[in-house]
Design a protein around this nucleic acid. Structure first.
Lengths: 149, 149
DNA sequence: GTCCTTGCAAAAGTTTTGCAAGGTG
DNA sequence: CACCTTGCAAAACTTTTGCAAGGAC
Protein backbone atom coordinates (compact mmCIF):
# COMPACT_ATOMS: atom_id res chain seq x y z
CA UNK A 1 0.00 0.00 0.00
CA UNK A 2 2.36 2.67 1.14
CA UNK A 3 5.52 0.79 0.15
CA UNK A 4 7.75 2.84 -2.12
CA UNK A 5 10.34 1.03 -4.23
CA UNK A 6 13.37 2.22 -6.17
CA UNK A 7 11.64 2.14 -9.50
CA UNK A 8 8.74 4.27 -8.34
CA UNK A 9 11.17 6.83 -6.96
CA UNK A 10 13.13 6.99 -10.20
CA UNK A 11 9.91 7.48 -12.09
CA UNK A 12 8.73 10.24 -9.79
CA UNK A 13 12.06 12.03 -10.02
CA UNK A 14 11.95 11.85 -13.81
CA UNK A 15 8.46 13.30 -13.83
CA UNK A 16 9.72 16.03 -11.53
CA UNK A 17 12.55 16.89 -13.90
CA UNK A 18 10.22 17.06 -16.90
CA UNK A 19 7.75 19.17 -14.99
CA UNK A 20 10.50 21.54 -13.82
CA UNK A 21 11.58 22.11 -17.39
CA UNK A 22 8.01 22.78 -18.43
CA UNK A 23 7.71 25.27 -15.62
CA UNK A 24 10.97 26.92 -16.60
CA UNK A 25 12.85 26.46 -13.34
CA UNK A 26 16.40 25.20 -13.31
CA UNK A 27 17.14 21.60 -12.48
CA UNK A 28 20.00 21.64 -10.01
CA UNK A 29 21.51 18.70 -8.11
CA UNK A 30 20.20 20.23 -4.89
CA UNK A 31 16.67 20.37 -6.22
CA UNK A 32 16.83 16.79 -7.42
CA UNK A 33 18.17 15.67 -4.05
CA UNK A 34 15.43 17.49 -2.16
CA UNK A 35 12.67 16.22 -4.38
CA UNK A 36 14.03 12.68 -4.31
CA UNK A 37 14.26 12.71 -0.53
CA UNK A 38 10.65 13.77 -0.25
CA UNK A 39 9.48 11.29 -2.87
CA UNK A 40 11.26 8.46 -1.07
CA UNK A 41 9.26 8.59 2.10
CA UNK A 42 5.68 8.69 3.33
CA UNK A 43 6.80 10.23 6.60
CA UNK A 44 6.06 13.87 5.71
CA UNK A 45 9.38 15.20 6.88
CA UNK A 46 10.12 18.71 8.08
CA UNK A 47 12.64 20.96 6.34
CA UNK A 48 15.27 20.13 8.94
CA UNK A 49 14.74 16.38 8.50
CA UNK A 50 15.17 16.58 4.75
CA UNK A 51 18.26 18.72 5.21
CA UNK A 52 19.90 16.25 7.58
CA UNK A 53 19.29 13.28 5.31
CA UNK A 54 20.72 15.00 2.27
CA UNK A 55 23.70 16.24 4.23
CA UNK A 56 24.86 12.64 4.64
CA UNK A 57 25.78 12.39 0.99
CA UNK A 58 25.81 16.07 0.01
CA UNK A 59 27.65 17.76 2.89
CA UNK A 60 27.78 21.23 1.35
CA UNK A 61 24.06 21.74 0.98
CA UNK A 62 22.65 24.64 2.93
CA UNK A 63 19.59 24.61 5.12
CA UNK A 64 18.57 27.88 3.48
CA UNK A 65 18.48 26.13 0.13
CA UNK A 66 16.17 23.46 1.48
CA UNK A 67 13.82 26.10 2.86
CA UNK A 68 13.83 28.09 -0.36
CA UNK A 69 13.48 25.05 -2.56
CA UNK A 70 10.55 23.57 -0.68
CA UNK A 71 8.79 26.91 -0.85
CA UNK A 72 9.42 27.12 -4.59
CA UNK A 73 8.14 23.58 -5.17
CA UNK A 74 5.06 24.24 -3.11
CA UNK A 75 4.19 27.45 -4.91
CA UNK A 76 4.48 25.65 -8.26
CA UNK A 77 2.36 22.74 -7.08
CA UNK A 78 5.17 20.18 -7.33
CA UNK A 79 4.67 19.22 -3.70
CA UNK A 80 2.18 20.13 -1.02
CA UNK A 81 2.42 21.27 2.54
CA UNK A 82 0.55 19.08 5.01
CA UNK A 83 0.07 21.83 7.58
CA UNK A 84 -0.74 25.21 6.10
CA UNK A 85 -0.80 26.82 9.55
CA UNK A 86 2.69 25.93 10.63
CA UNK A 87 3.71 29.51 11.39
CA UNK A 88 2.40 29.67 14.93
CA UNK A 89 0.02 27.87 17.25
CA UNK A 90 -3.62 28.90 16.96
CA UNK A 91 -6.10 28.40 19.77
CA UNK A 92 -9.84 28.08 20.10
CA UNK A 93 -12.01 28.33 23.22
CA UNK A 94 -15.05 27.04 21.36
CA UNK A 95 -15.22 23.34 22.13
CA UNK A 96 -18.46 22.58 20.29
CA UNK A 97 -17.86 20.48 17.17
CA UNK A 98 -17.07 22.61 14.17
CA UNK A 99 -14.54 22.92 11.40
CA UNK A 100 -12.25 25.61 10.13
CA UNK A 101 -11.44 27.42 6.96
CA UNK A 102 -8.04 28.97 6.41
CA UNK A 103 -7.17 31.74 4.00
CA UNK A 104 -4.11 30.54 2.10
CA UNK A 105 -2.79 34.06 1.79
CA UNK A 106 -3.35 35.89 5.07
CA UNK A 107 -3.66 32.73 7.22
CA UNK A 108 -6.86 33.94 8.83
CA UNK A 109 -8.95 31.14 10.33
CA UNK A 110 -12.74 31.13 10.53
CA UNK A 111 -15.28 28.71 11.89
CA UNK A 112 -17.42 26.60 9.64
CA UNK A 113 -20.69 25.13 10.73
CA UNK A 114 -21.70 23.07 7.75
CA UNK A 115 -23.76 19.92 8.10
CA UNK A 116 -22.30 18.25 5.06
CA UNK A 117 -18.96 18.28 6.83
CA UNK A 118 -20.31 16.74 10.01
CA UNK A 119 -20.98 13.28 8.69
CA UNK A 120 -17.68 11.75 9.62
CA UNK A 121 -17.79 9.42 12.56
CA UNK A 122 -14.33 8.30 13.42
CA UNK A 123 -14.04 8.89 17.14
CA UNK A 124 -12.89 5.98 19.22
CA UNK A 125 -12.27 3.80 16.20
CA UNK A 126 -9.01 2.14 15.41
CA UNK A 127 -7.41 2.86 12.08
CA UNK A 128 -4.18 1.07 11.28
CA UNK A 129 -2.01 1.35 14.35
CA UNK A 130 -3.92 4.28 15.79
CA UNK A 131 -6.62 4.79 18.35
CA UNK A 132 -8.45 7.70 16.78
CA UNK A 133 -9.30 10.48 19.21
CA UNK A 134 -10.74 12.98 16.79
CA UNK A 135 -10.26 14.78 13.57
CA UNK A 136 -10.22 18.22 12.14
CA UNK A 137 -11.23 19.39 8.73
CA UNK A 138 -9.39 22.39 7.43
CA UNK A 139 -10.84 23.88 4.31
CA UNK A 140 -8.63 26.25 2.42
CA UNK A 141 -9.24 29.05 0.03
CA UNK A 142 -8.83 32.74 -0.46
CA UNK A 143 -10.88 35.13 1.66
CA UNK A 144 -12.71 38.16 0.33
CA UNK A 145 -10.20 40.65 1.71
CA UNK A 146 -7.32 38.92 -0.06
CA UNK A 147 -9.23 38.52 -3.32
CA UNK A 148 -10.01 42.22 -3.36
CA UNK A 149 -6.45 43.38 -2.84
CA UNK B 1 -24.39 32.77 14.11
CA UNK B 2 -20.86 33.58 15.11
CA UNK B 3 -21.75 36.73 17.05
CA UNK B 4 -20.43 36.72 20.58
CA UNK B 5 -21.99 39.10 23.10
CA UNK B 6 -20.95 40.26 26.53
CA UNK B 7 -23.28 37.96 28.36
CA UNK B 8 -22.02 34.87 26.56
CA UNK B 9 -18.47 35.83 27.40
CA UNK B 10 -19.26 36.33 31.06
CA UNK B 11 -20.96 32.96 31.14
CA UNK B 12 -18.02 31.23 29.46
CA UNK B 13 -15.56 32.82 31.85
CA UNK B 14 -17.61 31.70 34.82
CA UNK B 15 -17.70 28.16 33.50
CA UNK B 16 -13.97 28.37 33.03
CA UNK B 17 -13.46 29.43 36.64
CA UNK B 18 -15.63 26.62 37.94
CA UNK B 19 -13.88 24.08 35.75
CA UNK B 20 -10.45 25.34 36.85
CA UNK B 21 -11.40 24.83 40.48
CA UNK B 22 -12.65 21.32 39.71
CA UNK B 23 -9.37 20.60 37.96
CA UNK B 24 -7.41 21.98 40.88
CA UNK B 25 -5.50 24.69 39.06
CA UNK B 26 -5.21 28.17 40.44
CA UNK B 27 -7.41 30.94 39.13
CA UNK B 28 -5.14 33.93 38.59
CA UNK B 29 -6.00 37.25 36.96
CA UNK B 30 -3.65 36.37 34.11
CA UNK B 31 -5.45 33.11 33.44
CA UNK B 32 -8.82 34.79 33.47
CA UNK B 33 -7.57 37.47 31.09
CA UNK B 34 -6.14 34.89 28.70
CA UNK B 35 -9.24 32.73 28.74
CA UNK B 36 -11.52 35.73 28.36
CA UNK B 37 -9.53 37.03 25.41
CA UNK B 38 -9.83 33.70 23.66
CA UNK B 39 -13.51 33.32 24.49
CA UNK B 40 -14.24 36.78 23.11
CA UNK B 41 -13.25 36.08 19.54
CA UNK B 42 -13.81 33.58 16.78
CA UNK B 43 -10.56 34.62 15.13
CA UNK B 44 -8.40 31.80 16.50
CA UNK B 45 -5.57 34.05 17.62
CA UNK B 46 -1.95 33.10 18.04
CA UNK B 47 -0.14 33.35 21.36
CA UNK B 48 1.40 36.65 20.33
CA UNK B 49 -1.96 38.13 19.34
CA UNK B 50 -3.52 37.24 22.68
CA UNK B 51 -0.51 38.66 24.48
CA UNK B 52 -0.70 41.99 22.66
CA UNK B 53 -4.41 42.42 23.35
CA UNK B 54 -4.06 41.71 27.05
CA UNK B 55 -1.04 43.97 27.31
CA UNK B 56 -3.29 46.95 26.53
CA UNK B 57 -4.99 46.71 29.89
CA UNK B 58 -2.55 44.48 31.77
CA UNK B 59 0.87 45.89 30.84
CA UNK B 60 2.89 43.66 33.15
CA UNK B 61 1.80 40.34 31.71
CA UNK B 62 4.59 38.26 30.24
CA UNK B 63 4.56 36.51 26.89
CA UNK B 64 5.98 33.47 28.65
CA UNK B 65 2.91 33.33 30.84
CA UNK B 66 0.65 33.36 27.81
CA UNK B 67 2.60 30.49 26.25
CA UNK B 68 2.59 28.46 29.43
CA UNK B 69 -1.04 29.16 30.19
CA UNK B 70 -2.33 28.21 26.75
CA UNK B 71 -0.37 24.98 26.97
CA UNK B 72 -1.84 24.25 30.37
CA UNK B 73 -5.38 24.96 29.20
CA UNK B 74 -4.92 22.80 26.15
CA UNK B 75 -3.59 19.84 28.09
CA UNK B 76 -6.56 20.06 30.44
CA UNK B 77 -9.05 20.29 27.59
CA UNK B 78 -10.21 23.81 28.49
CA UNK B 79 -9.33 25.02 25.01
CA UNK B 80 -8.16 23.37 21.82
CA UNK B 81 -5.39 24.01 19.37
CA UNK B 82 -6.57 24.45 15.80
CA UNK B 83 -3.28 23.33 14.25
CA UNK B 84 -1.66 20.42 16.03
CA UNK B 85 1.33 20.51 13.67
CA UNK B 86 2.38 24.08 14.28
CA UNK B 87 5.95 23.23 15.23
CA UNK B 88 7.39 23.11 11.73
CA UNK B 89 6.29 22.87 8.11
CA UNK B 90 5.69 19.34 6.85
CA UNK B 91 5.83 18.45 3.17
CA UNK B 92 4.42 15.76 0.94
CA UNK B 93 5.44 14.81 -2.60
CA UNK B 94 2.42 12.57 -3.00
CA UNK B 95 -0.18 14.64 -4.80
CA UNK B 96 -2.85 11.96 -5.16
CA UNK B 97 -5.87 12.67 -2.95
CA UNK B 98 -5.42 11.27 0.51
CA UNK B 99 -5.69 12.29 4.12
CA UNK B 100 -3.40 12.28 7.10
CA UNK B 101 -3.29 11.02 10.62
CA UNK B 102 -1.15 12.72 13.23
CA UNK B 103 0.13 11.22 16.43
CA UNK B 104 -0.70 13.72 19.17
CA UNK B 105 2.39 12.77 21.13
CA UNK B 106 5.29 12.31 18.72
CA UNK B 107 3.77 14.40 15.88
CA UNK B 108 4.40 11.68 13.33
CA UNK B 109 2.21 11.97 10.23
CA UNK B 110 0.99 9.05 8.17
CA UNK B 111 -1.13 8.74 5.07
CA UNK B 112 -4.68 7.53 5.21
CA UNK B 113 -6.46 6.04 2.25
CA UNK B 114 -9.96 5.51 3.56
CA UNK B 115 -12.97 5.67 1.31
CA UNK B 116 -15.31 6.84 4.02
CA UNK B 117 -13.20 9.98 4.26
CA UNK B 118 -13.29 10.68 0.54
CA UNK B 119 -16.91 11.65 0.26
CA UNK B 120 -16.48 15.36 0.78
CA UNK B 121 -16.90 17.42 -2.32
CA UNK B 122 -16.13 21.01 -1.60
CA UNK B 123 -13.71 21.99 -4.32
CA UNK B 124 -14.58 25.09 -6.31
CA UNK B 125 -17.56 25.86 -4.14
CA UNK B 126 -18.10 29.12 -2.37
CA UNK B 127 -18.63 29.02 1.36
CA UNK B 128 -19.28 32.30 3.13
CA UNK B 129 -16.75 34.76 1.79
CA UNK B 130 -14.40 32.10 0.50
CA UNK B 131 -13.66 30.44 -2.78
CA UNK B 132 -12.79 26.97 -1.61
CA UNK B 133 -9.68 25.51 -3.19
CA UNK B 134 -9.44 22.31 -1.24
CA UNK B 135 -9.48 20.75 2.15
CA UNK B 136 -7.49 18.48 4.34
CA UNK B 137 -8.64 16.06 6.93
CA UNK B 138 -6.28 15.50 9.80
CA UNK B 139 -7.21 12.64 12.05
CA UNK B 140 -5.51 12.55 15.38
CA UNK B 141 -4.71 9.85 17.84
CA UNK B 142 -1.90 8.06 19.54
CA UNK B 143 0.32 5.77 17.50
CA UNK B 144 1.38 2.29 18.56
CA UNK B 145 4.93 3.34 19.43
CA UNK B 146 3.69 6.04 21.80
CA UNK B 147 1.06 3.80 23.36
CA UNK B 148 3.68 1.16 24.12
CA UNK B 149 6.11 3.50 25.81
C1' DG C 1 27.16 35.13 -20.98
C1' DT C 2 22.82 35.88 -18.54
C1' DC C 3 20.28 35.33 -14.85
C1' DC C 4 18.49 32.02 -11.63
C1' DT C 5 20.13 29.49 -7.66
C1' DT C 6 23.18 28.53 -3.89
C1' DG C 7 25.72 29.19 0.51
C1' DC C 8 27.01 32.00 4.21
C1' DA C 9 25.98 35.08 7.77
C1' DA C 10 22.90 37.66 10.17
C1' DA C 11 18.35 38.79 11.60
C1' DA C 12 13.55 37.98 12.58
C1' DG C 13 10.15 35.30 14.59
C1' DT C 14 8.32 31.49 17.69
C1' DT C 15 8.71 28.58 21.69
C1' DT C 16 11.04 26.65 25.81
C1' DT C 17 13.63 26.66 30.14
C1' DG C 18 15.87 28.14 34.80
C1' DC C 19 15.31 30.65 38.63
C1' DA C 20 13.88 33.88 42.09
C1' DA C 21 9.86 36.56 43.52
C1' DG C 22 5.00 36.68 44.07
C1' DG C 23 0.16 35.29 44.86
C1' DT C 24 -3.62 31.68 45.34
C1' DG C 25 -5.99 28.43 48.04
C1' DC D 1 2.47 29.21 54.46
C1' DA D 2 3.14 25.65 51.00
C1' DC D 3 3.42 25.32 46.50
C1' DC D 4 1.79 26.63 42.06
C1' DT D 5 2.28 30.47 38.93
C1' DT D 6 4.48 34.53 37.15
C1' DG D 7 8.06 37.54 35.03
C1' DC D 8 12.57 38.17 33.42
C1' DA D 9 16.45 36.78 30.90
C1' DA D 10 18.58 33.67 28.12
C1' DA D 11 18.62 29.93 25.06
C1' DA D 12 16.74 26.85 21.61
C1' DC D 13 14.50 26.33 17.52
C1' DT D 14 12.30 27.63 12.94
C1' DT D 15 12.18 30.65 9.10
C1' DT D 16 13.51 34.71 6.25
C1' DT D 17 16.59 38.01 3.98
C1' DG D 18 20.86 40.32 1.72
C1' DC D 19 24.62 39.65 -0.90
C1' DA D 20 28.39 37.77 -3.50
C1' DA D 21 29.90 33.54 -5.79
C1' DG D 22 28.56 29.69 -8.59
C1' DG D 23 26.18 26.95 -12.04
C1' DA D 24 22.24 25.79 -15.46
C1' DC D 25 20.61 26.76 -19.86
Amino acid sequence: MSFINEEMIRERVNEFIDRSKELGIKVTPQRIAIYKELASTDQHPSTETIYKKIKDYYPNISLTTVYRTLETFEKLGLISVVNVLYNAARYDANLTPHNHIVCIECKKVEDIYDESLSTLDVSDKTLGDYHIKGYSILLNGVCKDCRDS
